[in-house]
């Protein structure tokens, strides 16, 4: 089944709008209702977006796991902005959540090495209270081979 490209981008935009508003993705049923599509159409569209690396699906293929920089599941990188909590996929994405939202944010991050936590404020476009570093595990050429391991 081929999904019209316009439908793919409408769905992608919806996913991002809902992530930004709530910190979580919608269920397939909700996406179908909003876009006036069947659930099968949404599933096919999601799979196409996944193949394009526009979003990444859960293992069963029936939900959105990641829409970078947002994560649908808890991670060591929590971002709070305007009363909404978000999970970011990695240390870079915790900054990406703020960049995507364009709003002041507070980041609570946990260091992988020893489970200590740090708080980072992003205020008026400036990062404050951030003595750490961001470590990329994989070189750019491998980023999309296994994004969850990047």
């Amino acid at each position: 089944m081929t999904v019209p490209e316009a439908t793919l981008w409408r769905l992608r935009h919806l996913i991002y709008q809902v992530f930004a508003a709530t910190g979580q993705p919608q269920e397939i049923t909700q996406m179908a209702n909003v876009l006036h599509l069947s659930e099968d159409d949404v599933l096919h569209a999601l799979r196409s977006l996944d193949e394009m690396h526009s979003v990444f699906l859960t293992g069963d293929g029936r939900g959105v796991l990641m829409a970078n920089p947002f994560s649908a599941v808890p991670t060591p990188f929590r971002v709070s902005a305007d009363g909404v909590d978000y999970w970011a996929n990695c240390a870079w994405d915790m900054l990406g959540v703020h960049a995507a939202l364009g709003r002041d944010a507070t980041i609570h991050a946990t260091y992988a090495a020893d489970d200590t936590t740090t708080e980072i404020q992003v205020v008026n476009g400036d990062v404050e209270g951030a003595p750490g570093i961001v470590h990329f595990q994989q070189p750019f050429r491998a980023w999309y081979d296994d994004l969850s391991h990047t």
Binding site: W9, H13, Y16, Q17, A20, M52, H53, S54, N68, P69, A91, W92, D93, L95, G96, V97, H98, A99, A100, L101, G102, I120, V122, G125, V127, A130, P131, G132, I133, V134, F136
Partner: peptide, 24 residues
Amino acid sequence: MTIGKAWALAKVWYYDRLSPEFHR
């Protein structure tokens, strides 16, 4: 990389992620 450099990269990489005109 430093947080400052990661922030600079995040801004240019993600600033348009919510836009309906975003393209990969």
